[in-house]
Design a protein around this nucleic acid. Structure first.
Length: 424
RNA sequence: GGAGGGGUGGCAGAGCGGACUAAUGCGGUGGUCUUGAAAACCAUUAGCCUUCGCAGGCUCGCGGGUUCGAAUCCCGCCCCCUCCGCCA
């Protein structure tokens, strides 16, 4: 959420952000409603002040033994007028808030301007896509041949887009989670947390999933709880409604959690394999940063996620999203894309974003400056470090051999009891 | 699931129809004192909204209601704690 005062005083910047993102929000209506609301408020507050003084006077007359009946009647009338004005002010405020909630974050100046993903800009590339002397297989075929991915059973147990991992496949998944957590906690300075995986509405609102993405989430029937679509939600909400000490910033958390997404509206896409599942594992990086250093923190966070792919020897590239592709709450976002031979292209495996104060304002996460003074909103960041299921797919496909076996990346072997090759 | 207790400023905690303009303590900040620090003492210290400013308004878990007037009384809801039951 943007600051209403900021919107009022920087209407041109907001207008440009909307245009750059290709969004239509009736900004003029918002500004007009806001003007109207403030006019009503001035009238309302003047009447409330009179009413307050009058009521006090009634009390004093009673104490002095005078008859307060006339004044009491006057105050009753005034009270009624106030009630009406309050309704009017509330309605205007609700309208303003509704429109304000539809305004996206302002993209950072370094973000390329363009209407869609074709304007995303590649910023760097690492590694070489493997050259196979044979016809490489997609991971879903490899996985089934090796007996480590069971798509049919996943469908039987749950429904489509759920997969059963078996044997070395389950071990590979677990090894990746442990490898990533160890890397981020031991070498990158993150504190590991394991949060609730069902969260309440306030948490979903704080990070911006509600109200917009309600259809994307699994909801409990008998409780007002949602399955998390990403660890970003519970981990960012760790400090909701808190005032942090400036010297505690930046705070780094990493968390492994399963994630659940309904994937409504993506019926035709990525239907095969592990790429788009309703349930998947992810190691997430979350930062609470001082406003002045948040864009530096974004570079570091992105590099931390990249390190996972470098250690695993997976070819990837980093893309900075254009204004048209940037998510609603983000001011800047880098996507990490891993090479997938079955797609013949790079496929998103991590998304690293700086939300500046957009989430912090919604979730009310502030810090107290060291010298005292007003609490300010922190900046929140997060990124996948990285998506585990897609990493399994990338390893199977990039490390496959002609006989259908798969070499285990060296960095992973200590986590797989020294296993070097996955074979049937 | 049953019974009881409770949600008040950064934290703890009093207040239970009209001087609440929310006591007090802790913590924070500034100062006095000190070679320096600690202690002590003095001062200061909630957020939000409207306003160029003066000033004014709102907020005591949330939402209604009673009243000229609600932190305080009534109704509904949410959350937390304790005990019992059930349970990995």
């Amino acid at each position: 959420m943007l600051d209403l005062r900021f919107v009022r005083e920087n209407a041109d910047r907001v207008r440009k952000a909307l245009a750059d993102r290709g969004l239509e929000v009736p900004l003029e209506e918002l500004l007009e409603k806001d003007r109207c609301r403030r006019a009503v408020l001035a009238d309302l507050e003047e009447k409330r002040a009179r009413h307050k003084r009058g009521s006090k006077e009634v009390g004093e007359r009673v104490r002095r033994g005078e008859d307060p009946a006339v004044l009491r009647r006057e105050m009753a009338t005034l009270s009624e007028e106030i009630g009406k004005l309050e309704q009017k002010a509330d309605a205007l405020e609700a309208a303003v808030r509704g429109l304000l909630a539809r305004l996206p974050n302002i993209p950072h100046e370094s973000v390329p301007v363009g209407p869609d993903e074709t304007y995303n800009r590649e910023v760097r590339r690492w590694g070489q896509p493997p050259a196979f002397g044979f016809q490489p297989l997609p991971h879903w075929e490899l996985g089934e041949q090796l007996g480590i991915l069971d798509f049919q059973r996943g469908v039987k147990i749950a429904e489509s887009r759920f997969t059963l991992l078996r044997g070395k496949g389950a071990l590979l998944e677990r090894a990746l989670i442990n490898f990533m957590l160890d890397l981020h906690t031991k070498e990158h300075g993150y504190t590991e947390v394991f949060p609730p995986i069902l969260v309440n509405e306030a948490s979903m609102f704080g990070t911006g999933q509600l109200p917009k993405l309600e259809n994307e989430m699994y909801r409990c029937r008998d409780d007002a709880l949602y399955l998390i679509p990403t660890a970003e939600v519970p981990v960012t909400n760790i400090h909701r409604d808190e005032i942090l000490a400036e010297e505690d910033l930046p705070i780094y958390y990493c968390a492994y959690t399963p994630c659940f997404r309904r994937e409504a509206g993506s019926y035709g896409r990525d239907i095969r394999g592990l790429i788009r599942q309703h349930q998947f594992n992810k190691v997430e990086l979350v930062k609470f940063s001082h406003p002045e250093t948040s864009f530096d923190e974004l570079e570091k966070l992105t590099n931390n996620a990249e390190e996972v792919l470098r250690r695993l020897g997976l070819p990837y590239r980093v893309v900075v999203l254009s204004t048209g592709d940037l998510s609603f709450a983000a001011a800047k976002c880098y996507d990490l894309e891993v090479w997938l031979p079955s797609y013949g292209e790079y496929k998103e495996i991590s998304s690293c974003s700086n939300f500046t104060d957009f989430q912090a304002r919604r979730a009310n996460i502030r810090f107290r400056p060291a010298g005292g003074g007003k609490a300010q909103f922190v900046h929140t960041l997060n990124g996948s470090g990285v998506a585990v299921g897609r990493t399994v797919a990338a390893i199977l496909e990039n490390y496959q051999r002609e006989d259908g076996s798969v070499v285990v990346p060296e960095a992973l072997r200590p986590y797989m009891h020294g296993l070097e090759i996955i074979e049937p």
